[in-house]
Design a protein around this nucleic acid. Structure first.
Lengths: 214, 214
DNA sequence: GCGCGTATTGAGCACTTGCTCAATTCCTCA
DNA sequence: TGAGGAATTGAGCAAGTGCTCAATACGCGC
């Protein structure tokens, strides 16, 4: 159905080509539809070749999962870990940023959740997802610490760990709501609401010019 | 003299029996493992009988989904809708209550998410889940309204709808975290943290008499 | 040209799935 | 007792799956 790819073949390219085909198939047919024949057809090769390069279908699945986790979760965590700034006021901006990322990553998020539950009987898949989520949560720890430190009275019985967990739980729940109802999801409303609860100034996004909303 | 001791299986009982068997199979093998033969074996009947009572496998799936939604989501929403009290201080207690319910419903929650993503290509399944979640969110609206009304200055640019959405997003995210790491999930920490953010008194649960659990 | 190892193909096997249906059992009631 | 209808069985079919493997095509140093 798609464009066939007549190309010279380096082993690494072939693996990439198969992975990309698998991704496309998964977008259409979900993880359950990831049969070797479907992926081979999408890549324009015979299904035997998939086992030549990946050994078995589970290995292909894991490779796709790794790419997906990197793209949707670990990369975002790394970005946050990379910035040394820890001003409490950054948290609102980070949340706003995260919510807009969700919107951008919607199809990949759907696939991610599909992996999670379709493959949840597989201990390896489960572990990789758990580890990725754990790292995502950890990436909010420095900011959470700075927020707590800034206002010790208010956060008397709230640890930074709990705050980071709360924020990521909120973001994960937002991801679910986004998938359930893509049309009704508004990052601005939610990020404002959370910023307000945290007693932080609203994130300096594109909300500056317009303010007339009762 | 008619003695009704040896009763023929009433049609309704058989359906129930099959549904229960399907639930048990789903607990072990997930939604993907819900084959007619597996369910039949679990119920101790032949696989043909399943099609006699349900027509096709999708109908059985939908029936199981309905039961699951009722048990894990709609029932909770109905409980909240039933109580006429709307004191703002109730919100913290409700959240705490909800978090503890999550803990109790863990296996059913896992199955619920499995349904969501395994069956997300099916428009009917998707719609039923969306509707259930929508109703769950709505059930927090009265409380959210009362919280906003109690402190208009603080929630100047946060609508009750946004607050209800935020709370349910948080709860849904907690459900995910609970499934990802059942051991590390502590309802008390999270409900305290949220109550603190909302500026509400902590829920009057079992936190008064100090539980000796580190 | 020739060999040789890698890449590639696709038929084929064993298995699972949803579902059908003729055959059989069971229950009720006359 | 037996007729009739509902309930129940399980073999069987078509379609789909992961995976194997003999057969072939290809690239490349001679």
């Amino acid at each position: 159905m798609e464009v066939p790819v007549p190309r010279p073949k380096a082993p690494h390219d072939r693996r990439r080509q198969i992975l990309e085909a698998a991704y496309r198939v998964a977008l259409r047919q979900r993880v359950a539809g990831l049969s070797s024949r479907a992926v081979a057809a999408q890549a324009g090769i015979s299904n035997g070749l998939i086992f030549f390069y990946f050994g078995n279908s589970r290995a292909l699945l894991l490779a796709l999962l790794d790419w997906l986790l990197e793209e949707t979760i670990l990369r975002r965590a790394a970005e946050r870990e990379g910035s040394p700034e820890e001003a409490p006021s950054r948290l609102a901006a980070e949340v706003r940023n995260a919510l807009e990322s969700l919107l951008r990553d919607r199809v990949r998020l759907e696939l991610f959740f599909d992996f999670w539950f379709t493959g949840s009987h597989d201990q390896v898949i489960r572990d990789r997802i758990r580890t990725a989520l754990e790292r995502y949560r950890q990436s909010y720890l420095p900011l959470a610490r700075s927020v707590v430190a800034q206002n010790p009275a208010r956060y008397a019985n709230v640890t930074a760990e709990a705050l980071a967990g709360l924020v990521t739980a909120f973001l994960e729940g937002c991801a679910l709501q986004l998938i359930a109802e893509p049309r009704n999801f508004d990052p601005e409303t939610y990020s404002k609401a959370l910023a307000s609860l945290l007693g932080l100034p609203p994130a300096p996004g594109e909300s500056e010019p317009k303010r007339t909303k009762p």
